[in-house]
């Protein structure tokens, strides 16, 4: 490396500027080329998680793109993904939340027009590995037991874990996580009943 300390400041500034400009434009070009594929990947990700809660057989549209907003009971807007077949709404999917052992558990659930659960998945959580993470279908079938249930089946007072006198199993050593998920799903079903006409309206 040459020893350059006698050069005036503006030379250093120019060198830095030249490198910034050069590598900046390199990144700009990369962004140009990758922008479209990245957007595409994002939609695919969404579709992949929607497929788990909305069976592909029930729709002929693309629920990932057919979305609208519905105000929830807390005043916040909720994004709803809609599945339609031959112009009729066959199911809706939306997010709901439960308060887990280590922060919020984000749940996505699909419901058919009669209010029956088509599928539930916990999409984001920080529960203890090996203990609370049994809510993932990869780690066990627990989350699948909700398929086909609705707000009246089991009755509302049974929408609890067994330890609280309800219907659903907790895991050994972990009660808080399953309780959070059950509560989240129940709230999700209540949201469906409260907004049923709006959710199923054809537009």
């Amino acid at each position: 490396m040459s020893y350059n300390s006698n050069k005036p400041t503006y030379v250093h500034a120019m060198i830095l500027a030249a490198f910034s400009a050069g590598f900046g434009s390199l990144l700009a070009f990369t962004d140009l080329f990758t922008d479209e594929p990245i957007k595409q990947r994002r939609i695919e990700d969404l579709q992949n998680s929607l497929v788990q809660v909305l069976p592909p057989a029930i729709y002929d549209n693309n629920p990932a793109l057919d979305t609208f907003m519905v105000p929830g009971e807390d005043g916040k807007e909720r994004k709803v993904y809609r599945a339609t077949k031959e112009g009729k709404v066959t199911g809706v999917a939306y997010e709901t939340y439960g308060q887990g052992y280590a922060g919020q558990i984000k749940i996505i659930m699909g419901v058919d027009p009669q209010g029956k659960i088509l599928g539930v998945r916990a999409v984001q959580h920080k529960e203890t590995p090996g203990l609370g993470d049994k809510i993932e279908p990869k780690k066990g079938p627990w989350i699948l037991q909700f398929n086909g249930l609705s707000i009246d089946n089991p009755p509302p007072n049974m929408w609890k874990v067994k330890k609280d006198g309800g219907k659903f199993d907790q895991f050994s050593g972990a009660t808080i996580t399953p309780r959070a998920v059950v509560t989240g799903i129940r709230k999700g079903l209540e949201f469906f009943s409260a907004n049923k006409p709006q959710l199923l309206e054809v537009r």
Binding site: M1, Y3, N4, S5, K7, V11, H12, A13, I15, L16, F19, S20, F23, G24, L26, L27, T30, D31, F33, T34, P37, I38, R41
Partner: peptide, 29 residues
């Protein structure tokens, strides 16, 4: 061409650019 005085910012600039490149490419493909 990299003078002694500005070498650290330039190095970080280059590393950051390469990282972003890898980041975007990975995300896309």
């Amino acid at each position: 061409y990299i003078t002694n005085e500005v070498r650290i910012p330039v190095y970080i600039l280059i590393v950051a650019a390469m990282v972003t490149l890898v980041d975007l490419t990975c995300n896309a493909w």
